[in-house]
Design a protein around this nucleic acid. Structure first.
Lengths: 150, 150
DNA sequence: AGCTTTTTGTTGCAAATGCAACTTAATCGT
DNA sequence: ACGATTAAGTTGCATTTGCAACAAAAAGCT
């Protein structure tokens, strides 16, 4: 069985590093682009779901969101139907930087897929989605403090 | 052109989180497993090459190595042929934890590839290696402080 | 209804991460 | 051979990251 974890780690860290450096021009600090994109796509999303989408600790996400709220990129509104929940939205200012993030992501994706046939690109995409689905349960299990059996 | 970055990020963060939690039992702190495996595979490797293999900042790698040296997992020897270089090796103690890391990685990889045919597993592996190669130059360019044109 | 469990979010540490800036050794150019 | 550039590693500082532990609201249970 071939190893796929190593390449995935390399690719993710490399592209994340590139993104973080490039987004400093737009005054985004480390990781912020991830949250902005996800909130943009899911207006009104709550913290725990956002953290689970991105696969990042909820306390990390919480502080990132707080900071982005302070910087005027995001805003939170209390959900009147559920006083525990704070719904997160992109502000106008946040909406202005979104296209730049999107453009960067598109470009990196393009570079990543260079020389790969359209068919294989789709295959790769589908296989990666399958892998993401495959590990989801283990992630939640371990995060909950339970142990994996192996 | 399908997006592959998102799944890759999710998979990497999820599996990295799992690994870090599981390796606390063996007294490894965040990220240390990555270095240990790479040094194990490349005895005598130097810091800068190690950092570039893993795609992590060299100062981050430097401090991780220092800490692992203090904990007796790794050791460094001055290269007599080049006084700048410090060659890194796994110690006996480090060699003892290696099998546990390897086993965990194998298991996560297995979970990740569940339900994917052997043919597709190989295809996925090969495509990911291609992607890793595709982005290598951009990574080094941006790390060097130069800009990407897009 | 009343008690327990789960959901959602927050703080308090301690540690890792990485950009800037620096030192020293090696290599390059001429 | 010597000055300039690159390679290799380190330290300072600010920030992010995440595990524990907590608080409060909501949902489940009987």
């Amino acid at each position: 069985m071939p190893d796929i974890l190593r390449s995935i780690g390399i690719i993710d860290r490399a592209l994340d590093t590139i993104a973080n450096i490039e987004f400093k021009e737009v005054n985004l600090t480390r990781g912020q682009y991830l949250y902005l994109v996800r909130v943009y796509e899911h207006p009104g999303i709550i913290l725990e779901r956002l953290a689970n989408l991105i696969k990042v600790d909820k306390t990390t996400a919480a502080r990132a969101i707080q900071k982005m709220e302070k910087n005027g990129l995001l805003e939170r509104k209390m959900n009147p139907a559920n006083k525990k929940q704070k719904q997160i939205y992109v502000t106008d200012k946040g909406r202005q930087v979104y296209p730049l993030i999107h453009r960067e992501n598109l470009y990196s994706n393009e570079v990543a897929l260079t020389g790969i046939s359209p068919d294989d690109q789709v295959r790769l995409h589908d296989l990666l989605e399958q892998v993401a689905k495959n590990i989801e349960d283990d992630y939640n299990t371990v995060k909950r403090g339970e142990k994996r059996q192996y």
